[in-house]
Design a protein around this nucleic acid. Structure first.
Lengths: 212, 212
DNA sequence: GTCGCTCGTGGCACTCAGTGTCAAGGGGTG
DNA sequence: CACCCCTTGACACTGAGTGCCACGAGCGAC
């Protein structure tokens, strides 16, 4: 499940402990309060004190759940990175890179489209706030490193010696970025899955080239 | 001239005003002190107070020259973005994208190699410090937007309608990133210009494809 | 020369992000 | 009941970044 699509209520599965459920609840409360305030008033106009007052916890507790104000927002989309990597790892090793990477990006992106009402405001907030944009790009850089490793493993190449794996990961995330941006600029009107196809049609010749 | 290769002394050209030269001097002093301290002790271990004490100016003055602690470092490499765009704009409009973009990236990258002693420590500092990495990527995102516009202009395409310009810019900067990283990891041993050639050999098929 | 203008600077106070520490409470376990 | 573990809230503190104001150095006008 990508971008923490919690339902706001505590799931009462018996296998998780009480403390665990309380933690989830506080985290949800905090995320909900933060995203709602930030999207409405803008990133700089909201202080941590406002957020914790709305969520009904202490300032100190906020920083036990999130490393920074940026983190609340970025965390919301953070799981997509793991999703992309996991999806790539699940593709057969002999599949063409362009196909495997397209699928890897496709799945999380399509999930965005499925939760447009919740995800789109967050994406718009990130794209228009430099500090958030920076932190999000930082996160993407980690995704890029992960993807690089996975691509190298699939091809049996050494990422420290060969430039292809890193470039392939970079191109795939450039496509991801372009899709997210187009999707946001169209107010969610364009189909993310289709945008992904179009983006990968452009970069495929390089992904499947001989990588000399 | 990329990455502010000042000489530490005040150039006494008569056509610039006294105040202007003083400003340059303070800026140099600050940059010098900051880079030296940060590279030696690490980003988090150095406070603004230390920097300004070393440079001999007040805390308040620091923020008149740089927007943040990150900014001192990132600014040092910031001109490379303008360089890339300018270089691209200078290429003939009918040149193949792979060739034009390769040249555009090549020139600033080669400049890095020419000032290795000064640039390499900064690059290493950025790559190993998350906060700086984030700010640098943020800056690169601006470069990407600029490049996207220039690519669209060259091809007479609309960047708002066509995904190719944004993807081409993204791929070029992915290549730039990969080169910078390899260069840093090799302690400057590998030739940046040659790394650029190799990276563009990988992405060229996509840059010169029909961009369907 | 000196008056007055401008601009860069330093000093101060303030807000806010982020962290270390400690005491208190609540829930599970013997 | 007593004990332990984990989470929380409260407080204090550092450091980044900003607004404000007064001072002084350069510079043109007279």
């Amino acid at each position: 499940m990508y971008f923490s699509v919690y339902d706001g209520a505590v799931s009462s599965r018996p296998e998780v402990t009480m403390a665990e459920r309380k933690r989830q609840l506080v985290s949800s409360e905090l995320t909900e309060a933060a995203l709602q305030l930030l999207a409405r008033k803008g990133f700089d106009a909201v202080t941590i004190d406002e957020i914790v007052a709305t969520a009904g916890v202490s300032r100190r507790t906020f920083f036990r759940y999130f490393a920074s104000k940026e983190d609340v927002v970025v965390q919301f989309l953070a799981d997509m990175g793991d999703g992309i990597r996991a999806e790539l790892a699940a593709r057969p090793d002999d599949e063409r890179p362009s196909v495997a990477l397209r699928h890897a990006v496709w799945v999380p992106v399509a999930a965005c489209g499925d939760h447009r009402e919740r995800v789109l405001p967050v994406v718009r907030l990130i794209l228009r706030t430099p500090a958030l944009r920076a932190r999000f790009l930082e996160r993407q850089a980690q995704w890029s490193d992960d993807l690089t490793g996975e691509v190298a493993r699939r091809l049996g190449r050494d990422a420290g010696d060969d430039m292809y794996p890193r470039l392939a990961a970079g191109m795939a995330l450039s496509a991801f970025d372009a899709v997210l941006r187009r999707w946001s600029e169209s107010d969610g009107a364009e189909d993310p899955a289709q945008l992904t196809d179009r983006a990968f049609a452009v970069i495929a010749p390089a992904l499947d080239g001989d990588g000399a």
